[in-house]
Simulated assay, not measured.
Amino acid sequence: MKQRTQTPAAVYLHIPFCTNKCHYCDFNSYILKGQPVMDYLDALEREMERTASEVPPGEIETIFVGGGTPTVLTPEQMESFLRRVRAYFGNWTANIEFTMEANPGTTDLEKLQAMKEGGVNRISFGVQSFDNVLLERIGRIHNTDDVYRSLENARQAGFTNMSIDLMFGLPGQTIEIMEATLKEALALDLRHYSIYSLKVEENTLFHALYERGDLPLPEEEEEVGMFLHIMKRLNEAGYGQYEISNFAKPGYESRHNSMYWRNQPYYGLGAGAHGYVHGRRHVNIKGVQPYIEGTRKGQPLLDVQEVSLTEAMEDFMMVGLRLLRGVRRADFAGQFDRPLETVFGTAIRSLVHKGLLEETAEGYRLSAQGLLLGNDVFGHFLGAAEAVEA
């Protein structure tokens, strides 16, 4: 299996601090006040040093800094953090994509300049909506003025490749409210938009409200209507839908996230971070202080699992079919040294028959109907591998 020998060309780094916890968020994040930020950056450096020693990186094609909210770091902390990243993972391709997540209102000009000087060349802003009432309802602390100010600061600092995240299916949201958000978002003429449906996750305020019957979510039919409307509007505006929830101008697709969707290996560093290196998936210790202590002992990992051939092939299908181009026979054969149809022929034929998958010249992709029922399609591949021999 190719992943067991392939050195990752992608790096994910986790900054777990946030100004507050949003009502829908179940990410590994902690409110910033009182947190040992520099101790955490020191710990992250210890993990970087250990990782680079154990699996020496080759050329790095993509870096993604997520959170939390990485942009809660001060300009000095940001400069220190980025200097360390370059020290251990600094062999960059000429056209590296270096993305950092940001929240509007946490990005003044000085900080953005420190990001730019440190190598960041793409920013993903967590906007979620251009409706201030809705923003307050979901626990965001920014408003639309903060969005415009942050984007203007980023342009002034020299950033041209920017993305924003939006959400649909929010409490009290209608297609009309979604359209008003899309109109403002598209007027910005950005390179990339990610638009996700709300998932009510356990251990969130929204989950508690949902359990009590106090979360006025849109009906399923209206949520599907929003998604259809989003796809139509983005397409009309010249954005290619290259993944279920992601739209880009040609050439501006997220190359880092595409590594995940193509089942490629990646380094994962930081509290609660996941990684996929040499055929093993790992997850790090989640808490800030326990992670710091773990790195001091040389053991930041919470769990490591060898990915079996069968699991890797199932993963390939489930993440690869998120891409609108679908999965390619040549990619499958390249990773697993066997034909796609030999392993998943029965599942594929069933899904094609149901009208959820369609055959392409190179492989298979979701049909228009399959796009609306993606999770059902992906579930078909769990336990569906046939005739597998290591």
Rank of each mutant, 00 (worst) to 15 (best):
A387Q: 12
K111R: 14
I230W: 09
N91Y: 09
N153S: 00
G105A: 06
R46T: 06
T107F: 07
E293S: 11
E110W: 05
Q299V: 02
P8N: 07
A43E: 04
L109M: 06
E79S: 15
H23N: 10
A237P: 11
T181G: 11
E176N: 09
Y24L: 03
I123F: 13
K249R: 15
T174S: 13
P36G: 12
D331S: 13
A248P: 09
T174L: 01
E358V: 06
Q3C: 03
P57S: 03
G251Q: 02
S53E: 15
P57W: 07
A271W: 04
L41K: 00
Q289M: 14
T342Q: 14
P16A: 06
E362G: 03
T19K: 14
L324T: 15
M78I: 03
Y266R: 05
E222L: 11
S308H: 05
L151C: 03
T360D: 08
K116D: 00
K297Q: 13
F344Y: 06
T71K: 06
A102K: 04
G345W: 02
Q128N: 13
Y242T: 14
E314D: 12
T360C: 09
T99M: 04
G172S: 06
I96Y: 13
N203T: 08
L32Q: 12
I164F: 05
N95F: 05
P56D: 11
V343S: 10
R280I: 03
T7R: 11
D337V: 10
E386S: 13
S308D: 07
M167G: 04
L41F: 01
Y148R: 00
V147N: 04
R255N: 03
V277N: 02
P16G: 04
F227K: 01
G126S: 11
L44F: 01
L82Q: 10
A368H: 10
K297R: 14
A387L: 03
N153P: 02
I348M: 01
V55Y: 12
F206Q: 06
G270F: 02
Q156Y: 00
K249I: 06
G275E: 02
T160H: 13
D303H: 12
D108M: 00
Q113S: 10
F247S: 07
E243C: 13
G172K: 08
L217G: 05
P218I: 07
P216I: 01
R46S: 10
V72W: 08
Y40G: 09
F247Q: 10
Y148E: 05
D303K: 10
A94W: 00
I138F: 11
S163N: 15
Y210T: 00
M178T: 11
V377F: 03
E219I: 06
M313V: 04
M259W: 00
K199Y: 08
L13R: 03
A102M: 11
L373D: 05
H229N: 12
R84P: 04
T181S: 15
D42S: 12
T19P: 09
P250H: 13
E211T: 14
M226S: 02
L134I: 13
F64E: 09
E79Q: 14
R280P: 00
K2Q: 12
R212Q: 15
Y88F: 15
V224I: 15
E314A: 12
T62W: 12
C25M: 04
Y196D: 05
A384G: 09
A114S: 13
A248H: 13
Y148S: 00
Q156C: 10
G119I: 03
I15S: 01
E386L: 12
L190I: 06
D42T: 14
L373E: 07
R122D: 05
R191D: 14
